[in-house]
Structures are given as C-alpha cells and as structure tokens.
Amino acid sequence: MASMTMIQALNSALDTMMERDPNVLTFGEDVGYFGGVFKVTEHLQQKYGKKRCFDAPINENGIAGVAVGMASYGLRPVIEIQFADYMYPAYDQLVSEAARIRYRSAGDFTVPITVRMPYGGGIRGGQTHSQSPEALFTHVAGLKTVIPSTPYDAKGLLIACIEEDDPVIFMEPKRIYNGPFDGFHDRQVSPWSKHPASEVPEGYYKIPLGKANIVRAGEAVTVLAYGTMVHVALAAAIESGIDAEVIDLRTLLPVDIETIVTSVEKTGRCVIVHEATRTSGYGAELSALVQEHCFYKLEAPIERVTGYDTPYPHSLEWEYFPTPPRIIKAMRRVTEA
C-alpha cells in the first residue's frame, strides 16, 4: 500500500493494465512525452514506449474514431479527452458508433474502449474547462458511465473499465485530483495523504461497476452524490450535524438501484447533488427512480442541489458551485418537512 493522489492512482491503474495486457494502449492530446496536462499518463511512454502511449492530434473526433477502429481490431484503447468540455467533437463517434456497434452488428463487432475525461468545476476554469456533461452519456443506450471520488476507487474502477467489453465513459473529478475538496473554497485544502482512501494497493484490483458506496451511514436523509460532490455532501452533513446517509454512486450507468432504494426506504427523504446544470440533468433521472421505487416511503419532496441552468461562470464560480450551505438548506427543507 502507498498513499497516492487520485492522479497517481489513475496512473497506477494504467501502468498496471499496460503491464498485464499488451492490447492496452493509451493516447490523447499531450499524453505521450509530457504525460498529460494533469500528469495522469506520466512516465508511461518512457516505460512502455511511444507506440503504447502517444500524443494525438488536437482532434477529439479522430481520437474517438481511431479508438473505435482499434477496439474493433481487438485492442483495448484508453483515450484521454483533455477536458470533458472538449468531448463534443467526439460525441458522434461515441454515441452513434461506439455505443451501438455491438447492437447493430448483432455482436459481430464490439468496442471495448475507455474514454477518460477530467470534468467539473471549482478550478477557475471558466465555461470551457468546468463542465459536467455526464447526462449526455447516461442518456445513451450502449454506454456505461463511471465517476470515482477517491484514489482507491479511481484505480479499482479504471481497471474494471479497461477490462469491460463495453465502451465506458470514465469521468475524473479534476477538482479532487490532488485533494478531497469539501466545497469551502475559502478554507485550507487538505491533501489526499490525510484521507484513508488514499491508501492504494500497488498491483491489480478491481471495484465492480454498478456498485455504490455508502460513505456515511445515517437515518435522517439520503444524499445521492458522485465525484467531487461526495466530499461536499459529507462536509455538509458534518457541518450541519444532520444525520445524513451519503451515498457515492460511483457508477452512474448502470446505477446501483438497490443501495439507493434501501437507503431512501430507511430515511424517507432524499437530496440529490451534482455540479451539472439541473434541467434534464442526471439528478432528474435519480429523482424519477427514487419516486418510482420509494414513493410510499417518501416523507418529503425530493430536492436537487445542482449547478444552475447557465453556462459555467468565471468570476461567480462560487455562486454557481453547489456548496455545503446550499446542501444544508436542502437537507433542512426535507428533514423539517
């Protein structure tokens, strides 16, 4: 075991899989010699050679399309989209191609690709470096969508994604690459080394897709979150003293419905938290699922705490970002209802 940041854990996952499987290779903008703008692929080119870890032209359409072709050959490419905000040129290849090739060819061809992309705000990135487009993937039949919240989960989930026979969108909460951010931007940031989930095994292990993690048990309200918002929701629970059960979904699709239902049936209350815009966001799906499965156990309307339906602002970032005070207000509304 070693203490790792999320970046180091992701790097270790790639290293582990490239070591184990010669069909695993990785490419993307600046990922080769430089090791990626966030350093997730650092040293991989030096260790495995430039054919297995290389720079791609600035063309997300091509990166995704080439990966689909490589996967149809039999490789397991892991591609990096430098920021989730840059994924739109790749969207057709992911939605119309990667997601549907198994179905349309009746299983003749499959596309085992992993599409890594840093997402989310809180880094002063403005509207083109802060977006959270997960709902654009969870809406697509044929894709799986995974978002880790700790170094331990990041490595185990990424390894599971690379071994998946279906295309997986692996979204990395870049605000917590280097430390678990609690949403209080004016407070001292804590490093991963002080967090128990920064203890990461050196070798191979997997965290199964489709399994959520109850990160804090509680009786008063269920809080559903993923990525950075897991830590913000936890901070809100601690700060408020509300006996909240915080669930880290880890896999958005297929989502762990059993863990969600068991929790909401116990608490009777549910708050959903995400950074993405609210309307037609992933929270809408979660809200519908909770309503469908838990209606007669609900004691209060389901609340959503999300980014607003605006482009991601720059100077007003901390007004936009779902912070602990907003989550606390929502938890109070549902627990006092």
Partner: peptide
C-alpha cells in the same frame, strides 16, 4: 477514422 484506427 475507424479504418485508420484498425490499420494503426
């Protein structure tokens, strides 16, 4: 691009 990827 898929053909290019297959060829690569």
């Amino acid at each position: 691009p898929q053909a290019v990827g297959w060829a690569m």
